[in-house]
Design a protein around this nucleic acid. Structure first.
Lengths: 189, 189
DNA sequence: CGTAGCATGTAAGTTGTTACATGATTCG
DNA sequence: CGAATCATGTAACAACTTACATGCTACG
């Protein structure tokens, strides 16, 4: 049995909330952990197969009239244990990769004035994106209040949303500050 | 000629600052763009080869007494044009992936009280990491002041450092806030 | 004499993304 | 009738990580 990767732990975690099909997991993940973790079907289906082979999830077939067959996966005791052990291990340091910052860093390559103008556009786009992201976060928060108001894990879920809020607010602040600086480059030079 | 990826644009960008060997590029990247972009030799050497084959960089061999041969790469006019075009295109939306948040989100899976205790440890680790990261950022800032005080692109470089500062400060704020909440879970339940 | 730094690369394995393929039902 | 939603998967490719392989010099 090979070592599991982070994507597989994400699936085990989601299955700890209840049995689900690959399709369900995708839908659920989008709004629940979507703000800090995303998986496509191309990862989900093969991963479930491997988890089932390792005995960490159990696969059962569900037939519904009129609808296609569903493969429903349930977390096993071993799967739960494996997940609990992973939760204890400290998280690996994240490798930063920020395309926008690369475009800022090299933005003055050809000419500082036209470069500044171009970078300003990228930052305006980012600012708009941040505002959309914040809306989405608020929507998720409302959804949790609606659908899981009394869930014992709710405080943990809200903490991850707060992280998102802090990050987005910081990004917006940086965008504002940077736009001002870019305007100065355009004028004074 | 295949489409270039972001790693290759990072290399073109670094080469826009002057001719360098693969080894040099790694050293330079670590402190200059290291806070938002990292590459290993396993990416750098094959990428340089492909960039040379595409005519975007020129490879020349440098011999030094006593030292191993160096392969020095210089950005060509076409490479510069290609990079300038890329700088204009808007950045793709980043796919978030945060292992720590996953450990927070599923942290209360087995039991909220022991879960909270475990999560608190992860967050304390993160807080310490943030403080180290902030120190590194300050060190980079000093280095830019020292080595490139009058460089025309300096304002752009400092902007990326400010982004890092904003993010780290936001992370520290979240860690503090979350630790308090976790302490409440441990007591009230 | 050992370690650190200079210097270049390959190979293997793992992961992640994108496009494709299929087919049913429900709703407007 | 067409579009959207439900539902599962594969294939091909692209990207990334890690370990391995080599060998020289300078310094303490």
């Amino acid at each position: 049995m090979k070592k599991l990767n982070q994507s597989q732990f994400a699936l085990l975690g989601l299955l700890s909330l209840g049995p689900r099909s690959g399709y369900d997991l995708k839908q659920l993940s989008e709004w629940s952990v979507g703000h800090f973790w995303r998986e496509g079907y191309g990862q989900i289906y093969p991963s479930l197969k491997r988890l089932a082979a390792a005995g960490l999830v159990k696969r059962s077939t569900e037939r519904n009239k009129g609808r296609p067959e569903r493969m429903v996966y349930t977390l096993t005791a071993r799967g739960r244990k494996e997940m609990a052990a992973w939760l204890q291990k400290s998280a690996a340091a994240e490798i930063p990769r920020n395309e926008l910052l690369m475009k800022v860093f090299f933005g003055g390559m050809e000419d500082t004035r036209t470069g500044a103008k171009n970078v300003r556009k990228h930052i305006a786009d980012k600012m708009a994106q941040c505002e959309r992201d914040m809306e989405e976060l608020k929507e998720t928060q409302r959804r949790i209040e609606r659908e899981a108001a009394r869930h014992p894990q709710k405080p943990f879920w809200l903490m991850t949303l707060r992280y998102g809020e802090h990050m987005i607010r910081a990004r917006i602040a940086w965008c504002g500050e940077t736009t001002k600086k870019l305007n100065q480059i355009k004028k004074t030079r």
